[in-house]
Design a protein around this nucleic acid. Structure first.
Length: 480
DNA sequence: AAAAAAC
């Protein structure tokens, strides 16, 4: 559906068109008209579904509608605080949403958007909170800090948006969110986004929302239709490294996001890859915020080809040129796998999500397959086949939608064109391991001409790699 | 046993 039928101000429709979007996504089509009525909303939408615009556009609509009030508000010399407050779990997400607000709000005269997140100096934030403000995007901790010191005023908030509510609860923000919500007028509109509304999130919704409308666009069992998933079994860390290097030097590799399980592994792996000549940096919560910002900027500007990150990057990061997501270390929760792979295949592009697993990871692989009710097809790369037999995997329990969607059995493998699925062998048994070089996939082309180990030719490296320490667990001395 | 987030 087109944006101009959603009831949005032409200034917003124009900004959306300027940004290159023609059609609204499902979550936008369904939630924007509801949001414009002022109703409370519970929205479950998968990552990359255009979620941010679905709450930023109605927020901007409200800002536009209130333009007349602003002169009055500014005159009085009183701190009014924002009209719209958005809470997000991570700092990067907050800044990304702020950027989107700037883009969609470019034709909104005098729009003021501010972010309040941890890890950055206070004075600029305090100044921003004091000035006239339309939209405030914040992580809970720092905002609560400002509330306690009286620097943040939320008594004129009209719209409260909770993005990634399930994640914020996972991170222990329940009390912070409740306290912040207590500072916001009860007459507000509240919009809550979450992958699920079961358990704690549902209870929080009950406490914060009034007669909410529900918009269910996607569940975790839905396929990312434009993301091809693959599994490579590796004998050991050495083998995993060789597979990784192969993937990173594929011709189709535009930019890769490589996930590790720990901060230490992220630094370590980025350091090794830099030594190999990759334009790489790491990203994790243990890094100073300034450097986190620079790294993300390096990824966006495409100075970086490879980003090695912890799950801080699992949600929200929206960089359309990420062609590969590689799970070098598995996530701790199956749910996080779904968020990780959603970092590729964005803005209508195709993406490849490759999981490198050792035998000890078989349990997690099984849980992921169970969670998504899909199996991840196991593949091999010529010259890099695992020497030990693959773990025996059992098919995930097929639930309703799984069968409903593909009556013939099997899942689409890449894109939507017929005949691309692996219809006859939907499960990753040893027999089901398909040849790696499958010419039907855009990611499968002729071998790069190298069968093992890392590339030796030095290429351009990115950023510093200070503070690197080899992890004790890695005594196998791969590579060199 | 991880990561994230306030100082």
């Amino acid at each position: 559906m087109s944006f101009d039928t959603l009831g949005l101000n032409p200034a917003l429709v124009k900004a959306v068109a300027d940004a290159g979007y023609t059609a609204a996504t499902e979550v936008q089509t369904r939630s924007i008209p509801l949001a414009l009525t002022g109703a409370d909303l519970m929205v479950s939408a998968s990552t990359g579904s255009g979620k941010t615009a679905s709450f930023i556009l109605p927020a901007l609509e409200r800002v536009l509608a209130a333009r007349g009030d602003n002169a009055k508000r500014r005159e009085k010399g009183v701190i009014y605080g924002p009209r719209v407050l958005v809470l997000t779990p991570t700092r990067e997400l907050a800044m990304q949403i702020a950027k989107a607000a700037g883009i969609y709000g470019r034709h909104v005269p005098g729009l003021r958007v501010a972010t309040v997140v941890g890890g950055v100096p206070y004075p600029a934030q305090i100044a921003a909170l004091r000035g006239p403000l339309d939209i405030l995007i914040s992580t809970p901790g720092r905002l609560l800090d400002h509330l306690q010191t009286g620097k943040a005023v939320l008594e004129n908030v009209e719209v409260l948006v909770l993005d990634e509510a399930d994640r914020m609860l996972d991170m222990g923000f329940i009390d912070d969110i409740t306290t912040i919500a207590d500072h916001v007028p009860a007459t507000r509109q509240t919009v809550m986004y979450s992958a699920t509304f079961a358990g704690h999130v549902g209870r929080l919704a009950q406490n914060l929302l009034r007669d909410p409308q529900r918009v269910d666009v996607a569940s975790h069992t839905d396929t990312h239709e434009n993301i091809e998933q693959r599994l490579h079994w590796a004998d050991n860390a050495n083998h995993k490294n060789a597979l990784l290097d192969h993937l990173l030097t594929e011709r189709e590799m535009e930019q890769a996001l490589v996930f590790t399980s720990t901060q230490r592994d992220a630094d370590w792996l980025a350091d090794r890859l830099a030594d190999m000549g990759h334009a790489v940096a790491s990203l994790h919560g243990g890094m100073p915020q300034g450097r986190r910002n620079r790294v993300l900027q390096g990824l966006r500007s495409r100075q970086l080809k490879v980003l090695v990150a912890t799950d801080v990057a699992a949600r929200g990061i929206d960089v359309p040129t990420i062609s590969h997501v590689i799970n070098y270390g598995l996530p701790m929760k199956a749910e996080d796998y779904v968020h990780r792979i959603g970092r590729t295949g964005r803005a209508g592009r195709n993406g490849l999500a490759v999981t490198l697993a050792e035998r000890m990871d078989a349990g997690m692989i099984r849980r992921i397959q169970q969670f998504t009710t899909q199996s991840i097809p196991a593949k091999t790369i010529v010259g890099l086949e695992p020497k030990s037999p693959e773990p025996k995997m059992f098919p995930p329990r097929a639930e309703g939608r799984f069968d409903d969607r593909r009556p013939g059995g099997g899942r689409p493998s890449f894109g939507k064109a017929p005949g691309r699925g692996f219809a006859s062998k939907p499960f990753a048994t040893r027999d089901g391991a398909a040849p790696a070089r499958d010419a039907r996939s855009p990611f499968d082309r002729a071998p790069a001409g190298r069968s093992e180990g890392f590339a030796k030719a030095p290429r351009k490296a990115f950023g510093d790699k200070g503070g690197f320490k080899a992890p004790r667990a890695r005594s196998d001395g791969y590579g060199r």
